[in-house]
């Protein structure tokens, strides 16, 4: 029975790419890497830089990461989601450095035989990346000011830096 299950759901669904990139995310190329004939559903989420924040015009963001930790954590989150939702393929990649407004800062692609699992896993992966992975954005505004922005503020609700309020649980 166990063997049958592993034959149906191979354990390695993660696409072997670097979880961090300091150059433009190539969504089309990533989508083609994630393409899988066993998947009837492919969900691509692209988190893009909005041109406004706290009422000001945003020119660009600069992302900093604790690179060794962030890489390991993203890989582990993707691996966990791939197992939990029996994904046929899964990947996530986050930008570091300067990302202009309108550009993609993070992409998550999940593939599964049917759409329910692909959507659920995708939300799970992006939520955990945003709340837990040591990556930070600094917003650069058109008025010349900058601000480290948009921190995960779950601690104010949960009282614990390691406990988060996730959308996927909502």
């Amino acid at each position: 029975m166990k063997m049958m299950k592993s034959a149906l759901f191979p354990q390695v669904a993660e696409v072997n790419i670097s979880p961090l990139s300091d150059i433009d995310l190539d969504l089309v190329q990533l989508l083609s890497l994630a393409h899988d004939p066993k998947a009837g559903a492919v969900v691509l989420f692209s988190g893009e830089v909005r041109d406004n924040s706290i009422g000001k015009t945003v020119n660009y963001l600069d992302y900093e990461a604790h690179e060794s930790m962030a890489s390991k954590m993203i890989a582990s989150i993707v691996e966990e989601a791939a197992k939990r939702w029996h994904l046929t393929k899964a990947l996530a990649q986050h930008r570091t450095g300067k990302v202009m407004s309108g550009e993609s800062a993070v992409v998550v692609i999940t593939c599964s035989p049917h759409r329910k699992e692909a959507y659920a896993a995708n939300r799970y992966i992006i939520d955990r990346i945003k709340h837990e992975v040591p990556i930070w954005k600094c917003e650069y505004f058109s008025d010349g000011t900058k601000e480290w922005g948009g921190n995960c503020s779950c601690q104010k609700i949960t009282g614990d830096a390691n406990k988060h309020v996730y959308e996927f649980e909502g």
Binding site: H94, V106, I129, K130, E132, I135, W136, K137, W148, G150
Partner: peptide, 28 residues
């Protein structure tokens, strides 16, 4: 985090530890 693993406040520090101080995440 010590050597890339999160630790709690009671963690005992060793002389050669590399300790990262990690503000709340703001990726995505």
């Amino acid at each position: 985090a010590v050597d890339d693993e999160f630790v709690d406040l009671s963690h005992l520090i060793h002389e050669n530890d590399e300790i990262s101080v990690i503000p709340p995440s703001s990726g995505g």
